[in-house]
Design a protein around this nucleic acid. Structure first.
Lengths: 128, 128
DNA sequence: CTGATATTTGACTTTTACGTAAACGCCGTG
DNA sequence: CACGGCGTTTACGTAAAAGTCAAATATCAG
């Protein structure tokens, strides 16, 4: 496990630009260390970036991702806060479950479309 | 099964604005019928809207949704086109599978976070 | 027909998530 | 030392996906 990653290493790994990483920092999603002005990304930063990318692919906005990231942090010490957090987790999970339903339905429709194509090919006497 | 839905009926049903529906029409995603100038949405239009909304929730752009919608249409008659379409379907399905992985991973991380919260509550002697 | 309500078109605005360009610092190499 | 390569900040630009507003029509109940 490396100590630090440079900004360009991460851009290559995740296929994003330096601008994007700086933007995520501006937005408070990540807080890479510094040597002078140069950003040093720790493994934990790298993991966060991975989570952000995942969130983006799933169509979450930066704000939603910020909320999700908050959740990953150490659980708070106070009972009220803990219960609040559990409620927020449930809320996010509901969103994710909705997305999963959307996903399954979309995949199913694509499967149907494919089947229709294949049938059509068979009708045309094309060996599949 | 109703023959037609008004624009506001659909906005209520899907929680979107009239502007959004007109935008989707401008973008060529839907083609509601008309009586005079007034749009009449058929069940098939309604179903399309449902698919669009699903796509949006999954983080697809309008262009990507346009491509997906093309796929749902009647399969083309020509062999080359059919094979091309099957390839495009496979491509979309890969994207969806990636999203599913993202989804599962995110859900898992949320589950872990929740577990940590619950444990913390137990430590504090709170009945769950 | 009339007044209320719904719809349409068109123009302009906004938000999000970056892209792009300019101008400069730091550092290792030949 | 100057040069290339990587990194930084600041500032402005932009495309996508609607939101907002206005003014003109259309539809429908009574």
């Amino acid at each position: 496990m490396r100590d630090y990653y440079s900004i360009t290493e991460l851009t290559r790994e995740f296929g994003i630009s330096t601008r994007t990483l700086r933007f995520y920092e501006d937005e408070g999603l990540i807080h890479p260390a510094r040597r002078g002005r140069t950003r040093l990304f720790r493994p934990s930063d790298r993991h966060l970036v991975r989570q952000i990318i995942r969130g983006r692919r799933l169509g979450f906005s930066i704000n939603e991702i910020r909320e999700i990231i908050q959740i990953y942090k150490e659980p708070p010490g106070e009972v009220g806060q803990l219960k609040l957090m559990i409620a927020r987790i449930a809320e996010k999970r509901d969103m994710l479950r909705q997305k999963r339903r959307d996903l399954e339905e979309t995949i199913e429709e694509l499967d149907n479309a494919e089947e229709a194509c294949v049938e059509r090919l068979v009708e045309l006497g094309v060996s599949t």
